[in-house]
Nucleic acid binder design. Structure first.
Length: 231
DNA sequence: ACTACGATCTACT
DNA sequence: GTAGATCGTAGTG
């Protein structure tokens, strides 16, 4: 629909590098295009009552049924991937590996699955608060990975499904990045679909994650595990 | 009800 | 280089 995008937080309280909030139409596009164009934009969180965030330097596109690496690959709606099929400009937050939250932004028109995983940002706003949430880490390690990023922004499952600009999260226009600065590679950590060139990052940024692309190491099976065995 | 395993990260070797 | 953490989800029975 055409309702005006709701700005959050009050732009006058932000650094001058931060422009207007991205309109919903920005996200109602091809997922790879959105992933590319999110580079350089400003992501902010007010989770926990403090505004923190920074400049997006690394993203990954996750598509629908054609993408084996996507939560929406099965095409069936489940409780988890429901948000990916919903309206654009919403946050898709999920939990994995027993430890980490992941932040995605939903793309494509309502009913079409798509999301962009935000993998890394360059810290700009509320750095002290992010240091508090990531005790003992050098600034370079505050947000250079999706799990670290979600921790530094104070995100959890309660942020899942929130419309950008209405919950704890918002994304803002900033200085455009030149195409020469952008590199593309396979996605990180996938057992399927890792060969697709859906990872976008600013090659020169020291805040990009150290994640390797390509197939993950063969995961050792839990043979003979007593997990759930004896009582 | 039960179980395998994951869009990761850290700490050790 | 790799094992372990630790819990939500999905697939199966």
């Amino acid at each position: 629909m055409d309702a005006a995008f709701v700005a959050w937080p009050d732009p006058s309280s932000l650094p001058s590098a931060v422009g207007a909030p991205l309109p919903k139409s920005f996200f109602t596009r091809d997922t790879c295009q959105v992933a590319r164009d999110l580079l350089g934009k400003i992501l902010l969180s007010q989770a926990g009552g403090v505004i923190v965030g920074g400049r997006i330097v690394e993203t990954e596109a996750y598509l629908g049924s054609d993408d084996a690496g996507s939560h929406a690959a099965t095409k069936s709606l489940t409780k988890r991937n429901l948000v990916m099929f919903g309206p654009p400009a919403h946050a898709y937050v999920y939990f994995t590996y027993g430890n980490h939250h992941m932040l995605n932004v939903v793309t494509e028109a309502d009913g079409i699955a798509g999301a962009v995983l935000i993998r890394a940002i360059e810290p700009l706003v509320g750095i002290d608060e992010m240091r508090r949430r990531r005790v003992g880490r050098p600034d370079q390690d505050l947000t250079n990975g999706p799990g670290k990023l979600a921790a530094a922004l104070g995100l959890n499952l309660s942020d899942n499904g929130d419309r950008l600009g209405e919950g704890n999260l918002a994304v803002y226009v900033a200085q455009e990045v030149a195409s020469e600065e952008v590199a593309v590679s396979g996605r990180v950590g996938l057992s399927a679909g890792h060969e697709l060139p859906y990872r976008y990052f600013l090659e020169a940024s020291p805040y990009v994650s150290k994640g390797r692309t390509g197939p993950p190491k063969r995961r050792v099976r839990r043979i003979g595990s007593t997990r759930g065995g004896r009582k």
